[in-house]
């Protein structure tokens, strides 16, 4: 067992973990942060995406011991005082989710993308979330959501493309 100190969604934690414990299992099983989920075992699906020290990572491909001394933000930590993050809001507005299993990772990856590229084109969004698989939506409404959020975060939210209307 190795002792680690990790700040997760603003809360400091000191825990003993086996070195082989994956960050996602630490989050889910030791901290009860079950909003972050596991979708594969080969680092392909991105469902487990969280932010580690400010960068989006796949928490199934990081050891918990590697987060020692670090700061983790999960899907449970991005709404501030009950106000949804613009990306969360946009996923809802634009119907960017169906079953919702990929959604936490998709949202965390999208936030990371927008930090680097605040005004991505459709192609840039598609490539920016290439590490996250969704089986339900066909991605189109996710792309719309990310672009909608980009607009809102830029403070000049363009009129939302009418959802439900045909494109």
């Amino acid at each position: 067992m190795t002792q680690i100190n990790v700040r997760v969604d603003g809360v400091s934690n000191t825990d003993d973990v086996e070195p082989r414990t994956l960050l996602v299992h630490y989050l889910r099983e030791q901290l009860g942060k079950v909003g972050t989920v596991v979708g594969c075992d080969t680092s392909n699906c991105g469902a487990c995406t969280v932010h580690l020290d400010g960068a989006a990572v796949k928490s199934c491909t990081v050891l918990a011991v590697q987060a020692d001394g670090g700061e983790v933000t999960t899907i449970e930590g991005i709404a501030q005082e009950g106000v949804l993050h613009p990306v969360q809001k946009a996923f809802h507005e634009m119907h960017g989710l169906q079953c919702g299993y990929c959604t936490p990772g998709m949202i965390m990856a999208s936030i990371d993308l927008l930090k680097e590229n605040p005004n991505p084109s459709e192609t840039e969004v598609r490539e920016g979330i290439e590490g996250n698989l969704c089986r339900c939506t066909g991605y189109q409404n996710i792309v719309r959501a990310v672009q909608q959020a980009a607009g809102e975060m830029a403070g000049s939210a363009p009129a939302a493309e009418t959802t439900g209307a045909q494109s």
Binding site: V34, G35, L84, H92, G100, T103
Partner: peptide, 13 residues
């Protein structure tokens, strides 16, 4: 907009 989303976009599933 879907009622289901509130829990799914916040990880309260």
């Amino acid at each position: 907009r879907r009622k289901e989303d509130a829990r799914l976009i916040t990880g309260r599933t």
